[in-house]
Amino acid sequence: GATAVSEWTEYKTADGKTYYYNNRTLESTFEKPQELK
């Protein structure tokens, strides 16, 4: 079976905060997504 690849990509803001962006739902969040835990 195919492994589900996380759609979340980790980015940093200009002031160094980490956030996560989902390229399928176009959602962004500062909290670590469930799929990455």
Rank of each mutant, 00 (worst) to 15 (best):
K32M: 13
G16N: 05
A2V: 12
Y20I: 00
Y21V: 15
E31R: 05
E7Q: 06
D15L: 05
R24I: 15
A14H: 11
T3M: 13
Y20V: 00
Q34F: 11
A14F: 05
T18W: 05
A14K: 11
T25I: 01
S28W: 15
S6D: 11
T3C: 04
E10C: 03
Y20L: 01
R24L: 15
L26T: 11
A4H: 14
K12N: 06
E27S: 05
E35L: 06
K37S: 14
Y20W: 15
T9Y: 09
K32I: 09
R24E: 14
E31T: 11
K12A: 07
P33F: 02
W8R: 00
T3D: 13
E27T: 07
K37N: 14
Y11C: 05
T3F: 09
L26V: 02
T25P: 02
G1D: 13
W8T: 00
T3R: 01
E31A: 07
E7C: 06
T3I: 12
L36D: 08
E10S: 06
T29G: 03
L26H: 15
V5P: 11
A2M: 12
A14Y: 03
Y11N: 05
Y21G: 02
E10V: 10
T25H: 02
E31S: 08
Y19V: 11
E31G: 03
T25F: 03
P33N: 02
Y20D: 01
V5I: 12
P33L: 02
K37Y: 14
T9K: 09
N23V: 08
E7P: 05
V5M: 13
N23H: 13
Q34H: 11
K17S: 07
V5G: 13
N23E: 12
L36P: 04
S6L: 09
T3Y: 05
S28F: 15
Y20T: 00
Y11W: 08
K37G: 15
K37Q: 15
T25N: 02
K12L: 12
K32T: 08
Q34K: 10
K17G: 04
S6Y: 09
E31P: 02
L36I: 08
P33D: 02
Y20G: 00
K17R: 15
T9E: 11
N22S: 03
K12R: 11
T9W: 07
F30I: 06
D15T: 07
E35H: 08
Y21P: 01
E35V: 08
G16K: 01
N22F: 00
P33Q: 02
T29A: 05
R24A: 14
Q34S: 14
E7R: 03
K17H: 07
W8N: 00
E35F: 06
T13Q: 05
Q34E: 15
G1W: 15
L26W: 08
E27V: 10
N23S: 10
Y11T: 05
Y11D: 03
E35T: 07
A4T: 12
E7M: 06
F30Q: 06
G16S: 02
S6I: 09
D15M: 04
T3L: 13
A14R: 08
